[in-house]
Nucleic acid binder design. Structure first.
Lengths: 187, 187
DNA sequence: GTAAGCAAAGTTATAACATAACATTTCTTT
DNA sequence: AAAGAAATGTTATGTTATAACTTTGCTTAC
């Protein structure tokens, strides 16, 4: 029986370590640049906020920036454990909680997974496109796209405090090659 | 430590059985009418589709229509068990799966909870306003509100297949009485 | 420089949500 | 009434997340 209740889950891990062919849907970017930029911004921001960017927090941020694929907490935990960090769930959930508070990461509700924030200076909520083919997620670069929704809410007197806006489907390359280029997570 | 990781959860149950003061945010409606209408539509729709509206399926639909508050699977299960139904998780998850397939219910991802569909004839995805005060959720009566999002996705060549759009906040009555009228679930 | 106080991390256990796999029952059709 | 299909029962387990308490380590005031 097909299971329509299933939460979306990322594709299973593989042993390949190639760059994804569809990194957040834009071809051929240097992902090391993404990671380094994210780390630099995080350090700056933590200094500004007077909070500590501890080793485990930094490492978790690096791990969720490894690719543009949202990572589950237990996937992160597994990697941490292999690197000598404590590997009980609270370790990773605390680090993620910190990163979310600081606006450095987002939770992808429909995947029960986490991803680095692409626009931490804005500290907005993320709107996401999630590819079910390659597992990548892209944060839309604006927070004004859902204005009609907010207006409708406002017209009823509903005060919006937080938004979960996640669109799932297929990114351009996963459409064109009808699944043949589906890329396993690099992690 | 405040926990920003928390998934939203409905307020804990109470023993009161009064009507919620903010039933899907519109004052003073007769909720029995909601339930009866939903059941009638479900029966009709199942006949049309040639699928069986079995006792457990009907009862689960009634339970998620008990109020406008999304219900967790285990909350449903608990009530089923008290009524002589089998009370193992697959029972309720299968019934919910059926109701989702038939467009009679929605999953509220950010709550891990389920709610009756207010517009089953349309069989669209639901867009929801979720009140953190009273726990009620209202399905927005249109599926065109997120067009700017879809256009943005389309402009990138992303093919949207499913949408998770859930706005959380406070409904009018939970704003005005600053929490004093927070209504416990009726279930 | 050291003690107090607090933030962070360690540790153990468990809660909450969901599915796998296989057995049995019930419905429908012939 | 038998065969086949759909639904449900049953047992077990997988997956995600948090509670509660302990220990470690950083910071600041003296």
């Amino acid at each position: 029986m097909p299971n329509t209740l299933s939460q979306h889950r990322p594709p299973p891990p593989s042993s390949t370590s190639t760059e994804p062919s569809c990194p957040a849907f834009s071809s051929g970017h240097n992902h090391h640049h993404c990671i380094n930029q994210a780390l630099d911004r995080a350090k700056t921001l933590c200094l500004q906020h007077g909070v500590r960017f501890t080793p485990v927090r930094q490492r978790v941020l690096e791990l969720i920036w490894q690719s543009h694929k949202p990572l589950g907490a237990y996937q992160i935990l597994e990697q941490l454990g292999g690197e000598g960090f404590n590997s009980a769930p609270p370790t990773v959930y605390r680090a993620l909680e910190f990163l979310l508070e600081q606006g450095l990461a987002h939770r992808i509700t429909s995947l029960n997974a986490f991803i680095g924030c692409s626009h931490p200076q804005r500290h907005h909520q993320g709107y996401f496109l999630i590819c079910r083919g390659c597992g990548s997620a892209q944060e839309l670069p604006t927070d004004t796209l859902a204005d009609p929704l907010k207006q409708h809410a406002g017209a009823q007197g509903f005060k919006v405090e937080s938004e979960t806006i996640e669109l799932s489907g297929l990114c351009p390359s996963c459409q064109t090659e009808s699944g043949s280029n589906i890329v396993e997570p690099t992690v």
